[in-house]
Every structure is written in structure tokens, then in C-alpha cells.
Write a protein that binds this DNA or RNA. Sequence first.
DNA 1: TCGCAATCCTTACGAATTGTTACATGGGGC
DNA 2: GCCCCATGTAACAATTCGTAAGGATTGCGA
Lengths: 233, 233
Amino acid sequence: MSTPMIAILDDEPQIRRMLGEALAEAGFRTAIFSRATEFEAALKRTAPDVCLVDLGLPDRDGLALVHRLALESGAAIIIISGRAQVQDRVTGLELGADDYIIKPFDPAEVVARIRARLRKGRDAGGGATTARFENWSAHFDRYVLAAPDGREVPFSHAEGEVLRLFLQSPKRLISRAQMQESLGGAAGDSFDRAMDVRISRLRTKLDEDPRNPRLIKTIYGAGYIFLGDVSWS
Amino acid sequence: MSTPMIAILDDEPQIRRMLGEALAEAGFRTAIFSRATEFEAALKRTAPDVCLVDLGLPDRDGLALVHRLALESGAAIIIISGRAQVQDRVTGLELGADDYIIKPFDPAEVVARIRARLRKGRDAGGGATTARFENWSAHFDRYVLAAPDGREVPFSHAEGEVLRLFLQSPKRLISRAQMQESLGGAAGDSFDRAMDVRISRLRTKLDEDPRNPRLIKTIYGAGYIFLGDVSWS
DNA sequence: TCGCAATCCTTACGAATTGTTACATGGGGC
DNA sequence: GCCCCATGTAACAATTCGTAAGGATTGCGA
């Protein structure tokens, strides 16, 4: 499955254009239809990964179409509708839709929801699993750290918890108390020493100079701060 | 999967009660938590099918929690939030959430969206009997494993249970407690040693190098993780 | 019912990882 | 400069995990 294919079915030209542009920009292939008959004919030739269907179609009952799609097609189905009542949403979802977006909508949210559907459908590798920072990359699915020189350093679960905490809020102070809370340690006890050791081990794996750490900086009496630009993917 | 288990994490008693009643009435099992630490502790023992998470938690950054769940748990994640901005929804979904519901909400819609998530989850590997991964294939109808070189290796029922668990949630951390629960073992007992043995046998059948397993990786103190892309048929 | 075989659990011991202790280092107030 | 306390880290202890070997259980056929 190279680039996912998104099918759009809507009778309003404006919305077709808006969605088409947003999805193309997001890197999807698109197939755009204004009438249900064309749409169904196309489905027999190629199977899209996600179908965006407007319920307010002039030439066919939208809900019936959704139901048929849900039964026969393997695609994820996202309803787009002007009908905002809870009952409408419930019946749409019960009939087999995977999501229900209300007009007017923001294209960015549509893209995000499509991505969410594709994630689940493709394989179970959910969310962003790797973080990149300063020529390093941390792969949380494999528990491996890739150094700038290409070397791979495995890290343990304990180290990973600390690392993830840092990478989730870089350039922000993380107090020791916050860490203990997040790492499930009972406060007060001598667990704080264990945390120091975790950080120490993490630092050696990150090739930090103990005298002058560049990534994990200690703020005396307050906590730690992770410098470095982080991007998740 | 008998009756699905829904975990709820919210700090407002009112909402906890409302959701709890609605989900119980809809026929789900529920596990309700008011604080993130309790919630995380429970996750180590048992794996819910869907997690409803409120972002406005007092004791933890909700988005970080969602991200962690997306990385480590196989459950579908539905965010419930009072923050209604499009940007909030997009970041929530990008971090790995499967859906985003805005307060105030109607319990009926929550139930409908949960059902939509469960539907998709079940489709993946529901009636399928064969799983393919990394040039291997596991035939659960015949209790046979086909190696990349064509050799056929039979596996027992006990081994199959473990293998199925892995193949149903690949690239996800599976804690030992969750395994025991899934495999019907009594907790705390010396049954955990039996699990090790099962996995050990499975590893030898999968031709794993004991020093450097490529498929079934041990996360010391946390559980196991199955690497490798899986597709069911 | 008995015996046989296959499977599975339990035990035991070695190996790997993590928490703990102890001591060294360095920062900050006086 | 001196003292106190927070932090770094090496060395040790405790815990967790891998797996070989032996015993218990189950299922099957006679």
C-alpha cells in the first residue's frame, strides 16, 4: 500500500474542491465524484482506502449507500453531513460508518481523522513511534536509539520511560516530582536515587559529556530540562 | 473477546457516573478511574478494548498520556475534552487517538463511536486463520508454522495461544499480567514461569537467536513485544 | 482399567537488568 | 572559605528472565 487512496463523494463543488486540495496537499491520492452512480461504478474498478461520503446527495439515499459500503467494501467510511443532530450521528455510525464529521468542517481535522483511520487499518503501529533530535533518533517500537554515526544502541524500558518523558516536552523544565509521578515511583522514598541512575545511564547512552551535558541538563534544585529540537514521526 | 471492556478516565464524578451507566446499559464491561496513576497501574494488569480519556486531568498531562497509550497499548483511544479548537483535535488525533469527542456530549454518541471502533478492531483477524509475517506464516487451523525456507513446524495449543496473542497486537507492548489474563492463568502463582517456557519454545520454533531475538523481544520488567508486520487472511 | 505417548507445568540454576547503597563531586548560602 | 544539601556514578544486591531437565497431567487405544 503505497500512497493511500481517498474517495470523495459530495454534490457541492466548493466542498469537493476544498477537500481535494487539502488531501492532495496531505499526500493522498484522491478520486472525486459528484454523483453516487459514478462513485459506485468507480468502486468496482479500484478500491479506495477511505471513503468520504456526504449524506445530502440528490440522487441517492446517503445512509443506504453507507450501509452498503460498510458491508461490501473494506474501506473506512467517514460521513460528512450538515445534519448535526445526535440521532443522525448515532444512526450513521450504527449503519457502519467509522466516523462522522459535521459541516462546516476544517480540512485539517478531516485529514487528521483520515490518518487515524488509516493507522488502525494498515497495521497496529499506532501513533508516532520515533522521535528525531540533533541527528539522533529514538525508536520506541523497537527500543533502539540510532546515533548520529549510524550506530544502534538499545535502551531498556526504564530508560525509555525517562527518554519519552523528555522527548514529549523538550525545552521545558521537568521537576523530579513530576518524573516520579510519571514513572510510577512512590514518592519520598529512596526511589529518587533510582531516577538519578536512570538518567545517568541514559546520558552515557546519549554520549553526553558528564561535565558538560548538551541534551539533558540538570537544573540544580529544580529538575531537568531536555534541550534539542524534537520531531515525532 | 467476550464482552468488550471499556476503561474510563475522568476526574469529574458526574461524567464518570454518566458514562459508566450508559456503557453498562449498552452491555459493556467498564473500569472507571479518576486519576491517571490508578489508570496506568490497572493497564499493567488487564488490557481494555477501548480507553475513554479526559484531557483535563489534574494530575497528569493528558496528551502525553494519550501518546504513551498509543505507543504501548493496543486499545482504541477516544479523547474526551472540553477543548473544542480544531488544533486541539488535530494534535490529539496525530498523537495516536482514534477519536475525539467534545464536551458536552451525548452518551448515545459515545456508545455509537465505541461500537464503531470495536467493529474495526474485530474485523482485523476475526475469522482469519492464517497470519503472515516476515516470510513466515502461521496456520491456526492446522497448528502449523511455515518457515521462510518452506519447512513446516508444528506448534502446540499452548504455544498457539501465545503466538496468537502476539500476532493480534504486533508492535505493542504486552505485559506479563495481560498475558496471564488472556491465557487464563492464575496471577501471582508460579504460572509466570510456565509462560516463560512457552515463549522460549516458541522462540526456538521461530529460529530466534537467543542473544538477539528479532521477532519476540523481551522488555525487561515490562513484558514482551512482537516486532514484524503481520497480515491476517 | 491399564499402558503409552504427547503435552504441559514445575523446579532449579545461570544470566541479564534494575534498584540500592555508598561515596565523590559540585552548587549555593553564609 | 566553610558547611550543607542536591546530584553523579561505581559497585553491589535484588529482582526478573531464559531454558534445560524431570515430573504431572491428559488423551487415546487396546
